[in-house]
Amino acid sequence: MSAETETSSRVATRTYKPAMPAGWWLRKGHYFWYMVREFTALPLALWLLWLLYEIQRAGRGPSGYYPPSSTPFVVFSVICLLFALYHSITFLRLAGVILHFKVMDKPVPSGLVVASQFGAWLVASIVIGAVLIGFGR
């Protein structure tokens, strides 16, 4: 009896410590792309900080302002764009899982919800692109 109590109390106080090897996310493609999705935040944050810097530089006056044209900057933007597209596609596709609507008491198919998100992305891109290019010279 006492041995049994001892064992059960010892079991009760044991803590489960999950052991994850350092490179667990390299084992499967699925894990890897999950980590890439989380990582997208870093390049996107850097690009937005660059945009903020670009805005700040306009405050230096006409003689102090010059637009970025270097090859490294374009390469940086291309890399950021790949991560941005991955973020957009994975994030907007989630809407089909998260958002549930009913129209006339019938649930809207998730494919339609996702399509509407991608449609909104397309429309927003066209409008913003038109403003950025249209106000340029």
Binding site: L44, L85, H87, S88, W121
Partner: peptide, 8 residues
């Protein structure tokens, strides 16, 4: 970020 950033 998903909707606005890529076009910028």
């Amino acid at each position: 970020a998903a909707v606005l950033l890529p076009v910028h």
